[in-house]
Design a binder for these strands. Structure first.
Lengths: 200, 200
DNA sequence: CAAAGATAATGAACAATGTTAATATATTGC
DNA sequence: GCAATATATTAACATTGTTCATTATCTTTG
């Protein structure tokens, strides 16, 4: 039966959609089996007919959120002009803005406990490469124009990845810096530093 | 009565010690009111006579762990010779080693949920400055020898703080890189990059 | 030293959580 | 339409944090 497959996929979609809305709106803490089931319009036990456990359901949202992040960044940088430096920076800034807008998604990506995720290597890689993925068009431009070599770009990307993750962890989880303004200034300072170094 | 104060302090100490051992040994997930009370030798309800809630108890461990981290690093770098660059790097590496050895402490410092910690600004600052604090002797040396200006040191420290936090988040929470060896290589690469830049 | 009063430790109880197993309900095949 | 299967739901359990009434213990006083 092809129907069965389709119906199952639809059911999974209902639960995933409900979970995504909860994460985006209220954060991961608000995600419980009962809350998700309520939003999906089913009983809490029904979830277990379609997902191994709550953890699997939660982490299935990662792929969707990654795509959502990419589209959001694309929208934000649509009007940005300038060279390699400016384009990469604009995307990094948009990436940061996305996660400050949806702290629950950041939590899911980087700090939420993932028991069994040891197996699901793909999800971990998606998370690791989320910034690179979002910046890809700008990187490609840099490479094509010869502004950077592949090795240089890889090193900068690695550097940006960790610095951005670190700053977001500090700001979203520990309120440091204490104000958004200070955070913003720090972000500019750090991103500029990383991007400028390799332009000399 | 001074006795009462002393006794209360002692009781708090028993619970804090139990919590610290649990965090170091089994991670934050293993910390429950019942587990802590068991290890402290009291009933679970007794905890509430000395702490507002479990969260307060958990985050009271931060100060102790910070000191423990500092001592651990001091021990690790005792024999290190060399200039400013080498001494700072040695401390950063020791800091990272400490947290890879005790992932539970890293979780507590950077990713554990802290509901009410908005008030306890001091704890947040302790966490933010943990790496700077640990590296302070080396920074002082750099400043005194004139290798770096205060502004340069501050910028490098900020850079190190976020990069190190980011790398640890990726490695401890998301197993990326997948092997300790790759992680170690990346750490060297990134720390060198940050420290070298300002030597030119 | 013993009784009254204060203090501190405790167990019962509650709500919320994730999860499983048994039951009820729909759907499908004949 | 009925039996067989698949699916959704309710019941139940173990754990969690937390509160509160009740013990147990310690202190003070007569």
């Amino acid at each position: 039966m092809k129907n069965k497959e389709l119906q199952e996929q639809r059911m999974r979609g209902y639960f995933i959609e409900a979970t995504k809305n909860l994460i985006k709106g209220e954060g991961i803490r608000s995600v419980s089996v009962r809350a998700v089931a309520d939003h999906a319009g089913y009983s809490f036990a029904t979830m277990y007919n379609y997902f191994r456990d709550l953890n699997e359901l939660i982490f299935l949202c990662v792929q969707d959120f990654q795509e959502e992040c990419r589209l959001d960044v694309e929208e934000q940088v649509k009007m940005v002009k300038g060279g390699c430096h400016e384009r990469v920076k604009a995307r990094v800034m948009a990436y940061i803005r996305f996660f400050t807008e949806y702290p629950g998604i950041f939590e899911l990506f980087f700090t939420a406990r993932a028991y069994d995720l040891g197996n699901r290597e793909g999800t971990l890689i998606t998370i690791e490469r989320s910034l690179e993925n979002v910046c890809k068009p700008a990187w490609d431009e840099c490479l094509e124009s010869g502004t950077l070599t592949v090795e240089q770009a890889a090193l900068i990307a690695e550097s940006l990845r960790h610095t951005v993750t670190g700053m977001l962890v500090m700001y979203l989880n520990r309120r440091r810096p204490a104000s958004y303004k200070d955070f913003q200034e720090m972000v500019h300072r750090q991103v500029d530093r990383i991007l400028k170094v390799h332009h000399e």
